[in-house]
Design a protein around this nucleic acid. Structure first.
Length: 566
DNA sequence: TATCTTGGCGCC
DNA sequence: AGGGCGCCAAGATA
């Protein structure tokens, strides 16, 4: 049962669709004030998949009206996947000219839109594009005609579930302790300065730097100026990045690095960030599902996916609530092992730390080596320690290594690679192809041949990583969708005098970071939530690898603040 | 003045 | 000559 939800805010419509996506009854028009009740009733009685053009556009108003949908089909996100997937090559959708369904995600919401974004009547419930039903039928047809209908269907389901979750995450927000955050800033930077002024904590280090170097006008905030100034006193650097400065033996280096570290905290997550992104004790970032070519999420403002470790203690559960901080251990190499059907590698990680397992089997000497080597294999590292470890890994895990090597070769040839569920990499640009073609001519200049090879290898590193990162992203979406489903089945906790959450006293997701989720949960249900998070991982493993389910160990720490996890 | 690019660095 | 990002400030450009 699928239901199309559209119509003007003054008279929203619900249209029942049959299994082919065709309307099976007259649209039902609902009075706006009764819409939430009607939707809730349909959710409970009929388990529909709601179909609409863009979850990010429409769902906020629905959540604001007190309804959380179980499932949806997001036409925009699905189009993006189907359009590019190698599995749908030859379908009419893949061959059709670009149209309005190929558009980009919405522009970023204003940072302080916060609650206002969710006001019903803010035209979020407008008419769907007139051809929404046609598009839905096209997508169904493309899936049916594809070489992997089951996998693609699963992919669109988890992608769409992710879109629902992203909206709910913003609605809920990550509980954020402003005082705690300010205390960290104070300890690193001193009191908040007047706008445009350096805080005292930075001023003090700067004085020290000026004394050491004798440069009265030393300006560490400008990389180009700083390079010139350092060279003027004989510190012959080519840039001012950390790894270059670290190698230099000079008394100014340590305080300079300290200055940069603290300045970074201020510019990225300082008082301005707090003012812009934290309201009413919640950090509300703007997630962008499918915002990365590999299928990972991106963010638009707020930098939710780059919360520095030093500030995690500011993510703190409300009184009477807990955070369940869950992390999928060594997700990407496990995904690779499963993708490649590499028995030995799967065994090395079964039920324990995968890297430790590699050490125990004598593949490498230390856990650090195992990690470094696997990252190098998945990213295409060709130098240093990680490259030296590759032969050992290739001997122990030939199938896993062969899979990433093959993906790299495909990319170097300009071919497309795909994830397990069928998300495909973009084609290289026309410039890239032209360069390769020119370099293949018999009279090509050496420089051009070299440049073409460099570019080919670079694209190969991208496709090499794409299959692993993209399939890991699919696992993470499936995981999160399962966790969401499990949490919704938890009853609301009994009132215990604590402040209610955004969904009453029901546990809910509050954060997502590629292979980590955080659940905000009434304290007496924290153990239940931890169980749901682990069960969700198993469910994701079954969805992606039904033949031989992948078991990714998940750590689930029950804590009061994020800083206590790990 | 507004917009784009770059360097640097935070996360996975 | 290690994949994917976002964000900020400074600097460059229009």
């Amino acid at each position: 049962m699928h239901v199309l939800l559209d119509g003007p805010a003054a008279a929203p419509r619900l249209t029942r669709l049959d299994e082919h996506g065709a309307p099976s009854a007259e649209p039902e028009t609902v009075a706006p004030e009764g819409l939430a009740e009607r939707m809730r009733a349909i959710e409970v009685a009929e388990r529909p998949r709601w179909v609409w053009d863009d979850t990010a556009l429409r769902y906020p108003a629905v959540v604001a009206a007190g309804v959380r949908l179980a499932r949806c089909h997001d036409l925009r996100l699905s189009r993006a996947i189907l359009r590019r997937s190698a599995r749908t090559a030859g379908t009419s959708l893949a061959g059709s000219p670009p149209d309005g369904w190929d558009r980009e995600p919405l522009p970023p919401a204003a940072p302080d839109a916060g609650e206002a974004l969710f006001d019903l009547g803010a035209d979020a419930l407008g008419e769907l594009p007139a051809d929404a039903l046609d598009e839905y039928a096209r997508q169904r047809a493309a899936i049916a005609a594809s070489t992997a209908p089951g996998a693609l269907g699963a992919l669109l389901a988890v992608e769409s579930a992710g879109a629902l979750i992203a909206v709910e995450l913003r609605r809920a927000g990550l509980p954020w302790d402003r005082e705690r955050h300010e205390a960290v800033l104070e300890s690193m930077l001193g009191p908040r300065p007047a706008p445009g002024r350096r805080p005292r904590g930075l001023e003090r280090i700067l004085d020290e730097l000026r004394a050491i170097t004798g440069l009265r006008a030393l300006n560490p905030d400008s990389p180009t100026v700083l390079v010139a100034q350092l060279r003027s006193i004989g510190v012959m650097v080519g840039s001012t990045n950390q790894w270059e400065l670290q190698e230099i033996d000079h008394p100014a280096i340590a305080p300079l690095l300290e200055y940069k570290k603290r300045a970074r905290l201020m510019t990225a997550n300082g008082w301005n960030w707090l003012d812009a992104w934290v309201r009413g004790g919640r950090f509300r970032p703007d997630y962008v599902p499918g915002g990365v070519v590999t299928g990972r999420w991106a963010t638009n403002g707020g930098g939710a996916l780059q919360l520095p470790a030093q500030l995690r203690s500011a993510a703190r559960a409300d009184p009477g609530w807990r955070l369940v901080v869950a992390d999928a251990a060594q997700l990407e190499p496990r995904i690779l092992a499963a993708l490649a059907g590499d028995r030995a590698m799967r065994e090395a990680g079964r039920g324990r730390d995968l890297y430790r397992g590699m050490v125990d089997r004598g593949v490498v000497a230390t856990r650090e080596h195992a990690k470094l080597g696997m990252l190098g294999a998945m990213y295409g590292g060709t130098t240093g320690e990680s490259a030296r470890l590759l032969p050992q890994l290739a001997r122990a895990f030939p199938r896993a290594l062969a899979l990433v090597e093959h993906a790299a070769r495909e990319g170097e040839q300009g071919r497309v690679v795909s994830t397990l569920l069928g998300r495909s990499s973009p084609s290289p640009s026309l410039e890239w192809r032209a360069l390769q073609a020119r370099a293949a001519e018999p009279d090509a200049a050496d420089a051009e041949v070299r440049r073409a090879r460099t570019e080919a290898r670079s694209w190969g590193r991208f496709t090499r990583n794409f299959v692993v990162q993209g399939t890991a992203a699919e696992w993470a979406l499936a995981w999160m969708a399962a966790v969401r489903r499990g949490l919704r089945q938890l009853p609301e906790a009994a009132a215990a005098g604590r402040a209610p959450g955004p969904f009453g006293e029901q546990a809910h997701l509050v954060y997502f970071l590629h292979d980590e989720v955080i659940v905000h949960v009434p304290e007496e249900q924290a153990e239940d939530a931890a169980l749901i998070v682990r069960e969700g991982a198993l469910e994701a493993g079954r969805l992606l690898f039904p033949g031989e389910p992948l078991d990714v160990p998940v750590t689930a720490a029950i804590v009061e603040d994020y800083g206590q996890a790990k």
